[in-house]
């Protein structure tokens, strides 16, 4: 007998969440050591005392990486929730408020998808005067369209469902139908969408910070660390770029895998073993 796939997914998801939580906390605790410069130990390649090596100011790269991941996770979670909120709002509104609103929302979606994400994030970030909130706004405002389309499709489908029409006929108010019938059906989809959104958000935050539009260089963000490492590549200090990037990839991968499996579970065909 094969391993129960659903139980496996649940386990993976719980593990991913715990790991994220631990990294977020550890990053907070390590924010002081991450900034600690010690020129006596600068430019050390990876060794036992400093598994990720140290940089040109003698800062421990492991501490910096964890602090950076912690920051990425917080930014990722915040933006995923924000863009999920936008998607839920616009998707629902577009499905239930008539053809004009629907056309308008789909026009806005086309517009947002027409500008490459990274350019739009640069624009939004500039509008917000860069920095932390610039990144948050930029990433949140660019990641909602696909999820909004999904929500819209689901709501449209549910609108046709007999039990909802019956509820409306029975005189249940629109708001109540929305709360008691629509939301419970939408939540799993939305939740999965959020989890799948999370890696994208983190990657874009890292990208925009790397380009210099995002988090300020004083913060130990992964994007900042990698941007700095560029200057030392030719000098052969590979550890400055390798480990922080690899850690980011692993965290993102964990979530992408969990989200993907969750999505598969929600497609009806996957009930077949």
């Amino acid at each position: 007998m094969r391993i129960n796939r659903r139980a496996g997914t649940l386990f993976l998801l719980i593990f991913a969440c715990i790991l994220l939580f631990v990294i977020a906390l550890a990053g907070e605790a390590l924010s002081k050591p991450a900034e600690l410069a010690d020129f006596a130990r600068k430019n050390l390649p990876p060794c036992l005392a400093h598994p990720f090596g140290t940089d040109w100011m003698g800062r421990d790269m492991l501490a910096r990486t964890v602090a950076g991941l912690s920051l990425s996770i917080r930014v990722g979670a915040l933006t995923a929730v924000l863009s999920g909120g936008i998607a839920l709002l616009l998707g629902t509104v577009s499905a239930i408020c008539g053809p004009w609103v629907d056309a308008l929302v789909s026009w806005i979606i086309d517009l947002v998808l027409g500008i490459p994400h990274i350019l739009l994030i640069i624009l939004v970030s500039l509008a917000c005067g860069q920095g932390f909130w610039g990144v948050i706004a930029g990433v949140a405002l660019t990641h909602w369209p696909s999820l909004a389309r999904l929500v819209r499709g689901e709501v449209l489908q549910l609108k046709q469902a007999t039990f909802l029409r019956a509820a409306r006929r029975l005189g249940v108010s629109r708001g109540r139908v929305l709360r008691t019938h629509l939301l419970p059906h939408l939540l799993p989809q939305l939740f999965t969408g959020l989890i799948l959104q999370f890696p994208h958000a983190i990657l874009h935050e890292a990208g925009i910070t790397f380009l210099g539009f995002g988090l300020s260089p004083e913060r130990p963000a992964i994007g900042v660390i990698l941007e700095e490492s560029m200057g030392y590549l030719a000098a052969g200090r590979w550890w400055l770029a390798l480990f922080p990037g690899l850690s980011l990839v692993l965290v993102v991968m964990l979530f992408a895998a969990a989200g993907e499996r969750l999505r598969l579970l929600l497609t009806p065909a996957s009930a077949q073993e």
Binding site: P199, L226, M230, L248, A256
Partner: peptide, 9 residues
């Protein structure tokens, strides 16, 4: 899951 710029690096 890999940032394009890190892959480039």
């Amino acid at each position: 899951s890999t940032p394009a710029f890190w892959l480039a690096l």
